[in-house]
Design a protein around this nucleic acid. Structure first.
Length: 531
RNA sequence: GGCGGGUUCGUAUAACGGUUAGUACACAAGAUUUUCAUUCUUGGAACAGGAGUUCGAUUCUCCUACCCGCUACCA
């Protein structure tokens, strides 16, 4: 029988979601949607010591910002669901709330001879480990040592019963077979074999907090939640044999999900996986959203840095996956259609911040002038600019209409990567220059040029046709050419007056935007200041 | 140390035994432009190394090197 596709993203709320984690979530989401299935969010909070307040909310908000909406696990208010309902049939979705479920499964494995009780304390084990390490050996809790340790395999039955009853720091460990080739299939890596003899007897359940470890909780929940594919990070590949064996021990082989292990995201330079520190050091975000930790340390986010969520999702998708053709720009829906696990790259992807910016630039250009204008408005307000609905451009009062802002945006958007670049690109479209770049003044503001520029200014001031780029621009150009004036020198004198420097937008564009009156003011100011 | 995974221009990647090894970002040069930016054109730039299999290996196998991950009562 064909099973409905169901995948899950199962982060641990130990901090903000890393961009690699978002990519994992994205790939899961794409796979689910492509197959008309469900994307489930499950919170793996079985380690009470590492719980970080706010991390869960952060994860949900980050996914939401990316447009990734879980079908199950999170309700309309953005809360992880604790109570069963038609839409959330497998609630609760926090493993800490599923606590009572796991013990029976651990017991089941012990009864079946696949696991056993271990009474060694964490301290004893640590001491043993240290001792063997001092001798240049590695301690491993498995067939090679379990016979000499304190567990239900070595202790008399009555003693085991007593310890089970009277002590609370015992665990259930998986009895890893001594010598078995575990054959596995990974959707990305293909056939993988590992000899179980090199693996250890992993703790599955702890009496101390009555909580399972990742391995048990993960397998039990994936089974109960009817997960069909497990798409997760490469760091889990070494645990895959254990997970295979666990499915086998439970007798769940028939419905065991297929596995796909994603390669890790690497640092832009050098070696190693991408970490929080790299971003801080190299000036790019590692997290989707800004995060402030308990110590008050701030980690920047893509959202706060000005990335569009579409661009972020797009660049993440292309990090370790490609469509097989030369397309690079994809919306979420297009990704759903184009995605395939076969085309996921096996090797780790080094993150390239420059390319990330390129994606944003492309998305910025695709946006309408209205959208961009609306995004620019708050920045203008911060700069003390008042926005009106009328038809104003008041350089003295700092009041401008939305329409004017839209015209500005249309003119400058090609020069920007982020909306936040807008202001720096052309503040002079809102504020009269008050200073003039010395170097540019020295270069262009010479008697022989200014004489001509002043004459040109007079011509422009007397312009009485419609102030439109199409007619005004060529007219100015013709005026200069007819007189055989040096175009660059004359124009840059005007530019100096308008901008305060010899760089910036086209003269005609600017004049059409700011108007003849403002043009005159700026020319007068420049003459007053520079002679 | 043990186990597993990986290795194509600086970076991301294409190629699924036969190509002048393609594309994008970045970089460089040129063109366009009144400046800057944009845009356009062009250019440099890679199969980790060694054996084998084959008529033929970037592609398949093995070895070496390097990189990454795991090796917790963390996920």
């Amino acid at each position: 029988m064909e099973r409905r596709t169901r995948v899950r993203f199962a982060p641990s709320p130990t901090g903000p979601l890393h961009m690699g984690g978002v990519r994992t979530a994205l790939y899961n989401y794409l796979w689910a949607k492509q197959h008309g299935g469900d994307f489930i969010l499950r919170i793996e909070d079985t380690d009470s010591h590492r719980f970080v307040p706010g991390a869960e909310a952060y994860i949900i908000e980050a996914l939401s910002w990316c447009g990734i909406r879980p079908d199950e696990g999170v309700d309309e208010n953005g809360q992880v669901v604790s109570v069963k309902s038609e839409r959330h049939p497998h609630a609760p979705y926090r493993q800490s709330e599923r606590k009572p479920i796991y013990r029976q499964y651990a017991e089941q494995l012990v009864k079946g001879g696949f696991a056993y009780y271990a009474f060694d304390s964490a301290e004893e084990l640590a001491a043993l480990r240290a001792q063997m390490e001092a001798q240049g050996q590695t301690f491993i809790y498995n067939h090679s040592t379990r016979g000499q340790l304190r567990n239900s395999l070595t202790l008399p039955a009555e003693e085991v019963e007593r310890l089970l009853r009277e002590t609370t720091d015992w665990t259930v460990r998986f009895k890893m077979p001594e010598d078995r080739i575990v054959e596995m299939d990974d959707m990305i890596r293909g056939h993988v074999e590992v000899n179980s003899g090199t693996l250890d007897d992993k703790v599955l359940w702890k009496r101390a907090d009555e909580l399972p470890t990742y391995h048990l909780a993960n397998i039990v929940d994936d089974h109960l939640m009817e997960i069909t594919e497990v798409i997760r990070g490469e760091e889990w590949l070494p645990s895959l044999p254990l997970h295979y064996l666990l499915y086998e021990a439970f007798g769940w082989q028939d419905t065991m999900p297929r596995f796909a292990h994603l390669s890790l995201l690497l640092k832009p330079d050098g070696k190693g996986k991408l970490s929080k520190r790299d971003g801080d050091k190299m000036g790019f975000p590692v997290f989707p959203l800004k995060w402030v930790n308990a110590e008050g340390e701030v980690s920047r986010g893509y959202r706060e840095d000005g990335y569009f969520p579409e661009a972020f999702v797009n660049l993440l998708a292309m990090l370790g996956w490609n469509p097989g053709d030369e397309r690079e720009l994809f919306t979420l829906d297009e990704l759903v259609a184009a995605f395939s696990i076969e085309r996921i790259v096996k090797s780790g992807a080094r993150f390239n911040p420059e390319k990330a910016k390129w994606f944003n630039k492309e998305y910025l250009r695709q946006k309408s002038d209205e959208t961009l204008r609306d995004a620019y408005l708050p920045i203008l307000k911060e700069q003390g600019i008042q926005i009106t609905d009328g038809n104003e451009k008041d350089f003295d009062g700092g009041k401008f209409s939305k329409e004017y802002v839209k015209d500005v945006v249309r003119l400058i958007k090609d020069r920007a990567t982020f909306v936040k670049d807008f202001w720096d690109i052309a503040p002079y479209l809102f504020r009269r220059p008050t200073a003039y770049e010395e170097k540019d003044v020295a270069k262009f503001w010479k008697e022989e040029n200014t004489v001509l520029a002043k004459e040109l200014a007079t011509f422009i001031r007397s312009w009485n046709g419609p102030l439109e780029k199409e007619t005004f621009g060529p007219a100015v150009e013709t005026y200069i050419k007819e007189r055989e004036w040096p175009m660059g020198k004359v124009m840059n004198c005007l530019r100096l007056s308008l901008v305060g420097a010899s760089s910036g937008l086209g003269i005609a564009d600017m004049i059409c935007l700011i108007g003849l009156e403002e043009f005159g003011r700026r020319v007068d100011n420049a003459i007053t200041a520079l002679g």
